[in-house]
């Protein structure tokens, strides 16, 4: 349902744009006669009424046909599928790291709400929010690439490494380090603060008092009884913010020339390759929806209340 809306939205957006494919193509080939333009319009079905065009477009998308890239002259679907893996690797690693480390920071901070670490988490959250992700990335490059010289500047992997070998995987990890650090830093900071607040809230609840009255030690109380409850809001927010992380990935990818969807999107925008841009917009919406479903599943695993409420 949502996806259909995205498709229709994409199409309407396209038709709102001044000029059409014929103009773009003609422009690239250095001007063309009216006849050629009309011919192109016929090929792309632009001479037909709006609703027919829309129906045709939706029908194609349903079959997995997102059109043809003007620039690469290949099916957009194919183009995108070739670029998805690096983006998912970057985004998912960053997200998982941000959730794990952020929650850990939050838990540690909540143990001493007025302690040094707790203040550190508060400051970290402010800094993480205020630092633009590309700036963080450049600072990390200055530190790790220029000064320490221990990290590669850009790309997914050293092209000379034979593909599929262990060295190849390690090299990908090596290249992954800085992009992931740049991207996850923002969310790590905000999840730390969130986890801290949520832990402090949970630690004050009645069932934690019950757990203590049972004779459980602080470790059990914190990590078994409190953490599982405290992590619920973190999962909620992470799910809600996934499209933001995806946005951040676009910037990070362009900084590190990471060969993923973000770089492709950015380059396609500069090239005016509209079918590719729309394809990426559609595809990223799909990824966000899938991730939201996964969030929902995680949610059910963690919180039995949701499980039975949805089953009922």
């Amino acid at each position: 349902m949502l996806l259909l809306a995205v498709v229709v939205f994409n199409f309407i957006l396209l038709s709102l744009v001044p000029g059409d494919i014929a103009d773009t193509l003609a422009g690239e080939s250095g001007g063309a006669s009216q006849e050629v333009m009309d011919d192109i319009r016929r090929t792309y079905g632009l001479d037909r009424p709006f609703h027919i065009q829309l129906a045709t477009y939706v029908g194609k998308v349903v079959q997995g046909d997102l059109g043809t890239s003007y620039y690469f002259n290949m099916p957009v679907t194919e183009l995108i599928l070739g670029r998805v893996a690096p983006t998912l690797l970057l985004v998912v690693t960053a997200l998982v790291l941000a959730i794990l480390i952020g929650t850990l920071f939050g838990v540690i901070a909540s143990r001493r709400p007025n302690g040094l670490f707790s203040h550190f988490v508060t400051v970290l959250a402010l800094v993480g929010f205020a630092a633009p992700v590309f700036w963080t990335a450049f600072l990390l490059i200055v530190l790790f690439v220029a000064m320490l010289e221990i990290m590669p500047l850009s790309g997914l992997v050293d092209p000379t490494t034979p593909r599929g070998t262990l060295t190849w995987y390690l090299d990908v990890l090596h290249h992954l380090f800085l992009p992931v650090l740049s991207l996850s830093s923002i969310y790590l900071a905000s999840y730390s603060r969130l986890a801290r607040a949520s832990m402090m809230d949970v630690l004050g609840s009645d069932y934690i008092r019950t757990a203590r009255a049972k004779g459980l030690g602080e470790t059990s109380v914190t990590y078994k009884h409190a953490l599982r409850n405290a992590v619920i809001p973190v999962i909620t927010i992470a799910g809600l913010q996934f499209s933001h992380i995806f946005s951040g990935a676009v910037v990070v990818e362009t900084v590190f020339t990471w060969p993923g969807l973000g770089t492709l999107a950015f380059e396609s925008i500069l090239r005016g390759d509209t079918p590719t841009i729309m394809g990426i917009l559609f595809f990223s919406a799909m990824i966000v929806i899938v991730v939201n479903l996964l969030t929902d599943l995680t949610y059910r695993l963690v919180d039995p209340r949701i499980r039975s409420a949805r089953n009922a």
Partner: peptide
Amino acid sequence: MRITEFFQVLPPLLLAMVLVALF
């Protein structure tokens, strides 16, 4: 809320980039 959900699903920066580029 359906409309809101729709906008939540689109990566905001990517959409902003597309909007600026198209217009």
